[in-house]
């Protein structure tokens, strides 16, 4: 058994922080930890993983891996797993990570625990905690297939630096053009100076109380002052004030930032499910009985149109 593998989530050489979070966590299992990176011209990234404890770095560098595509990535990973026999493979719980891990899991007829918030891996066994019903319930699950597969939620594990040998291993390239069944026609990046909702240390959200785009603008000012991601409750998404990709809650995203500020959000159960695990929660709402106050460390009963701009002024002082 060749320890735990962490699949590197990167785009155009930019490594997502969740990769380092996974490496740091995997070190705790006491077994060998390897980073596995697929891409074009990605070998130069290898020392980055050694900094977070990777004993080995498997680099599959080929034109075919330039952009993520399920078929080629699955073919390559399946061949590498057969060759090197890792005990477990961890992926980020992202658009690509979920896609990759699910198709791979079925190909290998393996068990996969997705959106994991707590992990414990020993030889031939993974014990994982998953927040299901968008965090209303915690399920502890066990995967005993060979290998154990999991996707890990961003932002739950701490990044710990620790020198690893970072020995570069170059596996045979097993994927061929025949494995590719998806044609990526276009990728239009979201134009936003703000950080990604699920990775941001601070999230500022606006709800029904924003009453419209003007209210959202006020919330945005606070978000930008704090370098925060912008989010919204279902009310502000359904009203069209914000795009669906910014929805926090059971049919949107689950976030767990250091600080969550809810502006004009009453706190429906499905919204609370998406943000209650934030470390600090502040809220501003006109209704003193709003359920959001039950989960808030600091609640302000008041009108966000008055309180939020004044708070921005205070913070600037």
């Amino acid at each position: 058994m060749a320890g735990t593998w962490v699949f590197v989530e990167q785009k155009d050489g930019n490594i997502r922080k969740v990769t380092f979070e996974m490496l740091s966590e995997a070190k705790k299992f006491g077994d060998e930890v390897s980073a596995v990176v697929f891409g074009k011209g990605v070998e130069a990234l290898a020392p980055e993983f050694a900094k977070y404890g990777a004993d080995k770095v498997y680099v599959a560098d080929d034109d075919i891996f330039g952009d993520y595509n399920t078929g080629a990535y699955v073919a390559q990973m399946a061949a590498m797993i057969a060759e090197y026999k890792p005990n477990a493979v961890m992926f980020a719980h992202t658009f690509n990570g979920r896609d990759f891990a699910s198709r791979l899991a079925q190909k290998l007829e393996a068990g996969l625990a997705t959106d994991v918030i707590k992990a414990e891996i020993s030889a031939g066994k993974g014990l994982f905690t998953r927040a299901i019903y968008a965090g209303k319930v915690l399920a502890k699950v066990e995967v005993t297939t060979d290998p154990v597969l999991a996707t890990i939620r961003a932002g739950v594990f701490e990044v710990v630096e620790g020198a690893g040998a970072g020995e570069v291993v170059k596996p045979a390239i097993a994927a061929t053009a025949a494995d590719v069944y998806q044609a990526i026609k276009d990728f239009v990046p979201t134009v936003s100076a703000r950080p990604e909702l699920t990775e941001a240390p601070v999230v500022v959200s606006g709800g029904r109380g924003c009453k419209g785009p003007d209210g959202i603008k006020i919330v945005e000012q606070l978000a930008d002052l704090l370098g925060a991601a912008l989010g919204g409750s279902r009310a502000s998404i359904d009203s069209g004030w914000l795009g669906h990709e910014l929805q926090v809650g059971q049919t949107g995203k689950v976030v767990n930032p250091n600080l969550y500020i809810a502006c004009g959000i009453s706190g429906a159960i499905q919204h609370l499910a998406g943000m209650s695990s934030s470390k600090f929660i502040a809220s501003i709402n006109t209704d003193p009985e709003a359920p959001i106050f039950n989960v808030s460390d600091f609640g302000v009963v008041g009108d966000l149109f008055k309180v939020v701009p004044l708070t921005v002024d205070e913070l600037k002082k």
């Binding site: 965090g135 319930v137 915690l138 502890k140 066990e142 995967v143 695990s277």
Partner: peptide
Amino acid sequence: KINIVEFSLP
């Protein structure tokens, strides 16, 4: 392929 060990409330 996956077994539930236990449920708990956060």
